Simulated assay, not measured.
Amino acid sequence: MLVYHSAFDMYHSVYRMIQLLNNLKRDYVELERLRIWDYYLAFPNEMTKIKFQKEANDIKKLFPDKPNPYELVLDGKIIFEKMRPYQMTALKTLASHGLIDKAYLSENRITKIKTTLSDEVIGKFEELSERESNIIKIMTTYFHNMPLYGEGGLKERTNLLEYRYDA
């Protein structure tokens, strides 16, 4: 049986990375944080499983309680790790085309998309759906300000990566 999902499509991974990096508010983002963002952009129903802070309950209300039965993820950690090669290939492709800085990528940091190229590339994309747009806004603002490591960090709240041994 053939099953397709955009999470395991290298070209769609490039598309998602461009969308996320084009909306960055700062100059760079950590690789692990970007991978987590990409996971939630590929699987928006999984947003309901995040442990939000109490003051962020309005964000949780943006996502329906009744998930789409065709988008159920049984084990998010396994799917997240299966996405890794596609995500890394997408980032290396962006670096090889000069859209992000190769030196930062080797340090596990990803830079913003260079503006001169992004206008040309982004202009060819279809407009984002409201759901995708909301996810990107939440990820690049609320989750960008949240610490990545340790208790209460993004890794713990999403339960996609191990956080207990963070320095």
Results as ranks from 00 to 15, higher is better:
Y86H: 09
Y86G: 05
Y86D: 00
Q87I: 09
Q87W: 04
Q87K: 14
M88R: 15
M88Y: 09
T89P: 03
T89R: 15
T89G: 15
T89E: 13
T89F: 11
A90K: 08
A90T: 07
L91D: 05
K92P: 00
K92M: 11
K92I: 12
T93Y: 12
L94C: 09
A95P: 09
A95W: 08
S96D: 13
H97G: 14
G98W: 09
D101K: 13
K102Y: 06
A103C: 11
Y104F: 15
Y104I: 15
Y104A: 15
L105H: 06
E107P: 00
N108S: 13
R109C: 15
I110T: 12
T111D: 13
K112Y: 14
I113N: 03
T115W: 00
T115M: 08
T115V: 07
T116W: 00
L117D: 06
S118V: 05
D119I: 07
D119A: 01
V121S: 05
V121G: 00
I122E: 03
I122T: 10
K124P: 14
F125S: 06
E127S: 12
E130K: 01
E130A: 09
E130C: 04
R131A: 12
R131Y: 01
E132H: 04
E132N: 08
E132L: 06
S133L: 09
N134W: 07
N134H: 10
I135Q: 05
I135Y: 03
I136R: 03
I136E: 01
I136A: 03
K137I: 11
I138W: 06
M139Y: 02
M139A: 00
T140N: 07
T140V: 04
Y142M: 05
Y142D: 05
F143R: 06
F143S: 07
H144W: 04
P147C: 07
L148V: 00
L148E: 04
Y149R: 08
Y149Q: 08
G150N: 03
G150W: 01
E151H: 10
E151V: 11
G152T: 00
G153H: 04
G153V: 11
L154W: 08
L154I: 05
L154R: 06
R157I: 03
N159L: 12
L160N: 08
L160F: 06
E162Q: 13
Y163I: 08
R164T: 10
R164M: 12
